[in-house]
Nucleic acid binder design. Sequence first.
DNA 1: CATGAATGAGAGTTCATTCAT
DNA 2: AATGAATGAACTCTCATTCAT
Lengths: 206, 206, 206, 206
Amino acid sequence: MQKKTRDAQATKAKIIHTSMMLFSTNGYDATTADEISKISGVNKAMIFYYYKNKVGLYGAVLSHALESIHDEVLKEKEYLTPLKDLKRFIKTYALYCEKHPYLPALLLRELSNSGAYLPDVMFDSMRKLFALLSKILKEGERQKLFHNVEPMLIHFMIVGTINLFITTKPLRKKSVELEEELNTCCDCDMEYIADYIFNKVKLMLS
Amino acid sequence: MQKKTRDAQATKAKIIHTSMMLFSTNGYDATTADEISKISGVNKAMIFYYYKNKVGLYGAVLSHALESIHDEVLKEKEYLTPLKDLKRFIKTYALYCEKHPYLPALLLRELSNSGAYLPDVMFDSMRKLFALLSKILKEGERQKLFHNVEPMLIHFMIVGTINLFITTKPLRKKSVELEEELNTCCDCDMEYIADYIFNKVKLMLS
Amino acid sequence: MQKKTRDAQATKAKIIHTSMMLFSTNGYDATTADEISKISGVNKAMIFYYYKNKVGLYGAVLSHALESIHDEVLKEKEYLTPLKDLKRFIKTYALYCEKHPYLPALLLRELSNSGAYLPDVMFDSMRKLFALLSKILKEGERQKLFHNVEPMLIHFMIVGTINLFITTKPLRKKSVELEEELNTCCDCDMEYIADYIFNKVKLMLS
Amino acid sequence: MQKKTRDAQATKAKIIHTSMMLFSTNGYDATTADEISKISGVNKAMIFYYYKNKVGLYGAVLSHALESIHDEVLKEKEYLTPLKDLKRFIKTYALYCEKHPYLPALLLRELSNSGAYLPDVMFDSMRKLFALLSKILKEGERQKLFHNVEPMLIHFMIVGTINLFITTKPLRKKSVELEEELNTCCDCDMEYIADYIFNKVKLMLS
DNA sequence: CATGAATGAGAGTTCATTCAT
DNA sequence: AATGAATGAACTCTCATTCAT
């Protein structure tokens, strides 16, 4: 009869995790409080008790999802060589996305709205991420290692590729089943992807 | 009061164009028949009269948006050199997206759902697009012009960059206002982008 | 099978009349759209279709209730003698309230809120009513017929008495049943009330 | 965090005073336990701990508000002359209402419901009040001091005027701002009102 | 073809009330 | 006595969809 948890932390965690899953798979609008409640096993009213309203919940979910990105991707305070920094950037972001597959989906969804309702926490994270890469690239340029750098586009190449790679996983599988000739990199693992991207970016900046 | 146009084609066109705008800016769920009706000036019931239901309307909108991609991007039947084909591919896709800015938004939205409800017409177009690039790249590999090609990833680099570039336009503007140091390629034009991408891809495949 | 009325006027009328009854007997908050729908036989959504939201409905109900007050009470354009005008004022207001017993209840309810949310239409009506009496009283004063006039208080005496008389009807009945000695004017009719008030006011202003 | 007062009387008092304020300004339905809790600083559950449910709380609030009316208005056991008694009645009631401005609001609100849910404690107080006036008037009639007395209506004139005067205070101010010509007795003080009413009632009963 | 009225199934949110500590 | 967590029943409002004209 340990059903009545009376444990605020546990309840909040259940709400957040269920919501993150539903928001990223079904989108904001198609995710209902009823569904979150049913799947998480938490009374519907608790969602509003803790997060005020649906928008508040969404913000909390994003905050939670982005929380670790600062620790994992942006933590590196000591800079090495631009090349090593670049490699680390790509690898960390790729692995981070693999570990939090909800993030790319949420990101693309927001962008599909032109970021009209993009919560601040997400906007900030995106900017910091870009600022970090930008700094690395500029330092490389200064050291004559990188040439003809357009940071924004390089950034899009890296994160665009990784995001698409993750969000299209089911589609690529489906595609392969239909026509085996197409090589959709279905079984590639993340390490490989990150290395491949790094090598290509290195080449294109040489 | 004499609004009774009685012109099926005109009515359908109004519905499709209004819907395309609303779907791509607000998303599927947040777009209501009432809104489409009010903005387009077409009676709400007509939407269902012509397109059966909301999903049907969405499919029609996508069909319409993708209609031209076949003519414009995939039409090229005669192949030149792989390099020229690659350049043409990138340029045509970029310009196509600029001409139909709704498309990238709709695409990202669908992908953010892992393409779970991706309409067939869209899935097919995406596959054909990839198949075309794939063919070009393989021919280049056969001719020893391109090396170490992973078509899927190259594809993602190209279309991911272009899609992000278009959908992030408002965000990049906003970002610049906040911090002028960051170069977000705010004033780059599409021709420049396409050329830049082509050159970088050429470099990375050499 | 004449059930589907498809008659906007009839539907609106059903909504308004049912709402007026419920608002005045149960108050704004305790009146639910479900109840209005069930009692009126009109689909719940139609309430919002026609009146946008609950506040809109309430406003419409008030407008409707007050509509006639201008015709009946305020219509008199030609002034006779102050005494005759005063008598007419009291009588018309009293009979109007008897004919629209919802009005006094709605009025008291709004006032119990200090008129914080008093809709404009109601505020205006109240002011016009007072302005009319004020004019009559001042003219009487000018003709030395009335003495020591404090228009606002005279106004309160008249409408306060009538309003209380109408809204306390059930209570007075109940009171009589408990203790027969108290004379609560239970069977007084409106004509008598109006005459009584007029005579007393005449006396007090002499 | 050391808010645990553990002082039942103080807690109850906080609840009652906050509730009285909220009930009279926002009405029964629009007053929520959450709001009472937040404003009073008392934990929400304590409201139900002490007063069982919302109706119980409301009853307690009314009891509290009416408690003093017996002491202040009804206490006079020794009767003087009818005229002096009448004057005292009006004055005491007027001053009492000024001291407890919540009461008139609560009263009007209940009456706007036709007293359907009027708590017994309030009903009794109202009856006792009327009984007192009734007795005074009858005695005056017996002594041939008052003529043509309809006690209920006289009662309504007195309390109706005072109640309206108090509850319409904000409205009268607002009205004056709009149209300065109307004299809404905005700055009249209670003593003046009570005297005016008494004089007018004396005149009308002569 | 076209229109406005009508419908029913939710969706988000609120709130009185209870429970466990 | 006091607290924060939990609950379930409403309630307002929305929206895809259908009907009658």
